Simulated assay, not measured.
Amino acid sequence: MVKISKNRVKELARLRQKKHRLEEQLVVVEGLRTLSQLKYYGLRPLEQYLGESEQAIWAGVPALQLDAEDFHRICDSDNPQAVAALFALPAAGVKSFKTAFYLDGISDPGNMGSIFRSAAAFGLDALLLSPCCVEVSSPKVIRASLGSVYRVPHAIIELGELSVPGLQLVCAEMEEGTLLQNFRPSDGRLVVAIGSEARGLSRQIREMARESVRIGMEEQMESLNAAMAASIIAYHLHTLEQH
């Protein structure tokens, strides 16, 4: 295994910044669990980076040896594992869907990644993102999604693109609407709009949507965060599909 050069470390460290990730269309992904999941999905990186005692994950992919200081420079977590890899950014694009979520202003990387992970687990066809959402290709989102950003089709869209015939737009609300356990989608395409816990959904979405759903909770609970709410709704829709 070849030891990485200082110049290469410097190049990879630049990818911690969004500007350079988007310019080069590359991202460093760290962590054995996430990388193992990406391998399971059939993805191959351009390079893999390993500590001295680590084994290569992919055969036939160039492997470079890094020390602890190098990993801290190229990875954005506080305590990076001694394994990482260089991938192309997850490709955006949604060709078609029957069931999707519209994410309105989800700015927390952990929430965004968790929603992608739930979407993959419960078979959502797509995630549609408002322009003000957090960057999907950030390392934190990729880790939180356990690589699901590479599996779930997604696209950034303007709200007006949801105003099409035959599309059922439903708002996920905290206090108003049909109880989720009583909700049954129509036969057409379904989009459930989910907002951030802090700001909720925009007025424009509420005006466009013809109906809303809410998750029944104990009275003393004020709200759920976006990722938890999305997971519960995704599971409910998945259960309906199974029956």
Rank of each mutant, 00 (worst) to 15 (best):
E161V: 00
E197N: 08
V192I: 15
V149D: 05
Y150K: 01
M208H: 02
R189V: 07
L128A: 03
S163E: 15
L167S: 00
R210H: 12
L190A: 12
R203E: 13
M174P: 09
I215T: 04
L129H: 08
E161W: 09
E176T: 15
L127E: 02
Q220L: 11
L180I: 00
R151H: 11
I142Y: 04
E173P: 01
E176W: 09
E161T: 11
G166W: 03
S212D: 09
I142H: 04
I194E: 07
L162K: 01
K140A: 14
L167Q: 08
G147Y: 07
G188V: 09
G216W: 11
H154P: 01
S118Q: 00
E176Q: 15
A126W: 03
S138Y: 00
L146F: 13
V134F: 11
D187F: 09
S202I: 05
R184N: 14
V136W: 03
G216F: 10
E175G: 05
L190I: 12
I215H: 03
I156N: 10
C171W: 06
S212W: 07
G200N: 06
P185T: 09
G188N: 06
A126N: 02
F122P: 00
K140C: 08
M217Y: 08
I156R: 14
A172M: 03
E175S: 12
A120T: 00
D187M: 02
P139M: 08
G216H: 14
G147V: 06
V141P: 06
